[in-house]
Nucleic acid binder design. Structure first.
Lengths: 194, 194
DNA sequence: TTCTATATTGAACACACTGTTGATTTTCTT
DNA sequence: AAGAAAATCAACAGTGTGTTCAATATAGAA
């Protein structure tokens, strides 16, 4: 684990590792994947793995961190929009679109053997922004209530997302976003529309 | 893994194993717990572990199955209530009360290193019942919409539950149940009350 | 192109955990 | 008290781990 360069070699190695890893994660939970097995799949030497990562979880977190960065970069412009007209539908749609773009990784992290806690991290990026926004709206709601509200809707969105994935993401992004917003804003009232 | 009786010995052994297991799960994720370590903590022989369980996940699922049974037994009377006046608040409160009663296990399964997917299983017990109930209410909502609704609110409830646990379950059960219901029924409208 | 730094390889190593076995001891049931 | 069943203990081969070293191969700069 010395300092390592951005060599072409290291980039290829890391890519091979990641590909094999996501492939394996599509087949079985992380706890039944061995480093030896991963390296055989990736076609790299076991020692090379240890040069880059300490263990499989280090690798997982590294992948997640990269995805997180992608995600933040993608929704930054949406969040940076003027405060007055924060278009929630657009923001939500942007988020879901970004997730769809990374659907291979999503399937892994949100799938049967995925790292559920990571999904929360993803959603929580918008947390402070949301809370701040809502606390402006609802003067008579306590901060604690808003916290609970966010806990509820963020987890709710993950559930929505999982269902979406489960169905192969056939429903258009905009419709999912509309659903998400409807559910967040009016709860069961969402079912009464039309 | 032969047939095993309900001996006093086996009950004690299993109890020791479970206690040690939940204690360890409070300290680290399951993937970094070894069977050897668990047996040392439990003060039992390693071979004895293998007589009852094949591996740590078998043990985990066994514990979860027991908790699930407890859970079902606890909310059965609430669900069996006459269909006409299904009191959602009471049902929800009952559910959360039951979870509070098993808070030690909840902390483990919902905590940092818990098995998030299990929480979903817990919540999904009420799934069919709920869907059936709602589909009666909202004639013009498609089954798919109802599915998405349930996906959203069930995950939302888990998020609420996690936050509740995080705060040490100091908020009264009834208040959490009211929150859950409010969020499920009116979404953000919940913040506008009072 | 050649040179140098560095990444990867392959082999070997001690170590730890696994899952199983058989003989022995303890404990429960009747 | 006697037989049945469970827990213990020690030992076993098998496998993955994490590290090391010398060797080989490759990238990037002069």
């Amino acid at each position: 684990m010395k300092k390592l360069t951005n060599d072409h070699r290291t980039r290829v190695t890391k890519m091979l590792i990641r590909k094999a890893f996501t492939r394996l994660l599509g087949q079985k939970p992380i706890q039944s994947i061995s480093i030896k097995e991963l390296c055989e799949q990736a076609g790299i030497n076991r020692g090379t793995f240890y040069r880059h990562y300490t263990d499989l979880f280090d690798l997982l977190h590294s992948i997640e961190a990269d995805m997180l960065a992608d995600f933040e970069r993608a929704i930054a412009p949406l969040i940076a929009a003027p405060d007055s007209n924060v278009n929630l539908v657009k923001l939500t749609a942007g988020v879901f679109q970004c997730l769809k773009d990374n659907s291979d990784l999503c399937t892994v992290t949100l799938g049967d053997w995925g790292d559920k806690s990571f999904a929360l991290k993803l959603i929580n990026i918008g947390r402070e922004k949301c809370i701040e926004c809502y606390s402006g709206y609802f003067k008579n709601a306590s901060p604690q209530q808003i916290e609970y509200y966010y806990a509820f809707v963020s987890s709710g969105c993950i559930g929505l997302l999982e269902k979406w994935l489960e169905e192969g993401m056939v429903t258009p992004v905009e419709e999912i976003a509309r659903m998400a917003e409807g559910l967040m804003l009016t709860g069961v009232g969402f079912l009464q529309k039309e």
